[in-house]
Design a binder for these strands. Structure first.
Ligand SMILES: [Mn+2]
Ligand SMILES: [Mn+2]
Ligand SMILES: [Zn+2]
Ligand SMILES: [Zn+2]
Lengths: 147, 147
DNA sequence: CTTGCTAACGACAATTGTTGTTGATAGCAT
DNA sequence: ATGCTATCAACAACAATTGTCGTTAGCAAG
């Protein structure tokens, strides 16, 4: 995703207005690799802007999506994750315990077997690695003696 | 998933009771490859059992999941899909227009790149082919002449 | 700088899919 | 046949997201 300043220009050329609320969201998202939920963005934005509404955050991320500046991911964690990394194609790993989402670049993704291609046009292939991160999993004991 | 009769036995050995409502759901799911939503199961069950409640359907599919007889899939279609095919490992294609879900057996799925394995224990790899089915897509013209 | 159009705002209600509660019913082990 | 208790249906509650609306303010043009 572009910088807050670049997005300001982009929004204006699209006839969209740029407000302090939107710029706060631009800043919170730029370079953010944590795949935040809309609600966590809302919380973060409220620390500097207590009256911002959740609706405004939803509206802004949808506008960003329409301009191709973020992807909205539904990874089965219960709420949408905002992904500002639209520059490099990548997949995701998801911790089923804490909801952590991390980018995983794959050099190769599977393709739809030939016999299905007549009946289905694939637009995107999504790979999700589900499991447990080291924060949540059993301490990956350096010493195998503590049991 | 096993037959309705086999499930009846399995439920009883687990101390679960088998009611006409549950048996109706067993029958609706056996051999069903359409990945129905809970709500569509509810509709189907009501035709033969008008007073069955949606809660009962949810409860039963969750019990079936706990016994490993179905998988509950969140494929980003807005509601959970019930998958009675627990016999053969497979992936899915999803029509983003009509919500169709179809099994796609893959001989090989990607594995998590080595550098992530220290920090993450992968329990499952999910591959989703998103696109448009032939019912929804532009008529796949046999003749390439109709522009 | 002023002005006016209208996009974006915040507040709040509504919607959807799912889960919690409860008192009554009925499955099934004994 | 009987009693324990899992399951039932009805209904309320919930969480994530979207819709409505009257007000405010961004910003392009003059
Ligand atoms: Mn990502
Ligand atoms: Mn399936
Ligand atoms: Zn975790
Ligand atoms: Zn379709």
């Amino acid at each position: 995703m572009r910088t807050a300043d670049e997005l300001t220009g982009l929004f204006r050329t699209q006839g969209l207005r740029v407000t302090p609320q939107r710029q706060a969201i631009f800043r919170l998202l730029h370079g953010n690799d944590r795949h935040p939920t809309v609600d966590s963005l809302y919380d973060a934005a409220r620390t500097e802007m207590p009256t911002i509404s959740l609706k405004t955050v939803y509206q802004t991320v949808h506008d960003l999506e329409a301009l191709g500046q973020v992807t909205l991911l539904d990874l089965g964690t219960g709420s949408v994750r905002v992904d500002p990394n639209v520059e490099s194609d990548h997949q995701h790993l998801v911790c089923t315990s804490c909801g952590l989402v991390r980018d995983v670049p794959l050099t190769e993704v599977p393709s739809l077997p030939a016999r299905y291609r007549r009946e289905f046009r694939t637009d995107a292939v999504e790979v999700i690695f589900r499991g447990v991160c080291d924060q949540c999993g059993p301490r990956p004991s350096k010493s195998p003696t503590n049991q």
